[in-house]
Design a binder for these strands. Structure first.
Length: 126
DNA sequence: GTTCTAACA
DNA sequence: TGTTAGAA
């Protein structure tokens, strides 16, 4: 996860988020207090929401409109976080394996080239 | 003027 | 959840 990712850049005041989502500032703060979003803060302690925060709030709103209660949303969020952790672990493992294969290929390749050169040179001395 | 937290209807 | 009070 990069901080430079446009999705996660802290950009919007709570008023903009209110206009974007149709939620009241009261609801937005309430959902934050339950961990549904984690907006950044300015030096003056005012919330700054990212595109990702807005998207998540829209998801929350839709779920609420469909009759899902707070506990249900919390479960979905927890399972989603679990999935993200799993994916990140898999990415790191995949990266490790890739590095290992690359390292081995490099060394095997050098040994192979060296033996080839020796083999080719040997033709001139026989 | 806007947003924050806390508290109460 | 809405609304209000007093402070940033």
């Amino acid at each position: 996860m990069e901080q430079s990712d446009r999705l996660h850049m802290p950009l919007f005041s709570i008023r903009i988020v209110k206009d974007l989502t149709g939620l009241t500032p009261r609801q937005i703060r309430y959902y934050e207090s339950h961990g549904f979003v984690q907006p950044a803060r300015t030096e003056g302690n005012q919330r700054l929401f990212s595109f990702a925060d807005v998207d998540r709030l829209l998801d929350i709103k839709q779920l609420l409109e469909q009759g899902v209660n707070m506990a249900g949303i919390k479960e979905m969020l927890d399972s989603r976080r679990k999935e993200e952790r799993k994916n990140e672990q898999e990415r790191e493992e995949s990266k490790r394996v890739h590095e290992k294969i690359k390292w081995e290929a490099l060394h095997q390749g050098n040994a192979y080239k060296a033996s080839m050169i020796q083999g080719q040179l040997s033709h001139f001395f026989h």
